[in-house]
Amino acid sequence: MEKYYRNQNIIDGELDNYQVMMHLEKGKYFGLNPIGKRIWELLVIPHSFQEITDVLLSEYNVSTDVCIKEVKAFMEKATQWGVIEKSEVPL
């Protein structure tokens, strides 16, 4: 099962209701909106895509289709930027 987790080379902090972070190796800054911030909070421990969407669906008033689409887009971008990483975890 594929799990997502935080890149350990990211330092982060909270500013108002947003998450700000810096990739130490790349020297790039990133900002997350409240939903991205919530996903970042969840990734303090590895989670699967399904686990993340299940939590968000239970916490926010959003349709399943929209949630899946938005989380997928976020995870793809965050992985591409090196903010989060993924790996196969044995069942």
Rank of each mutant, 00 (worst) to 15 (best):
Y60I: 07
E41N: 15
T53G: 01
M22F: 11
Q8E: 14
V66I: 12
P90A: 09
C67K: 07
H23N: 04
L57Q: 09
L57E: 06
E76N: 12
E14T: 15
S87E: 11
V83R: 05
K37N: 04
L56Q: 03
E14Q: 14
K28I: 05
Y60C: 04
M21E: 04
E59T: 06
Y4M: 00
E51S: 05
Y4C: 00
Q8A: 12
L43Y: 06
D65L: 13
A78T: 10
S58L: 09
Y60K: 10
N9V: 05
L56E: 01
I84R: 05
R38Q: 10
E2A: 01
E41M: 10
W81R: 14
Y29G: 11
N17G: 10
F74H: 11
E85I: 06
M1G: 11
E41T: 15
E70C: 07
S87V: 06
L91C: 05
V62C: 06
G13K: 14
P46K: 04
D12E: 12
K86G: 01
L43R: 03
I84N: 04
K72C: 06
L91P: 11
L24P: 03
N33C: 10
E51Y: 02
V44W: 13
V83Q: 06
L32A: 07
D54L: 09
Y5I: 10
I68S: 11
L91N: 12
E25F: 08
S48W: 02
E85R: 14
F49A: 01
F74K: 15
G36K: 02
Q8P: 09
V89T: 13
K77P: 00
G82W: 03
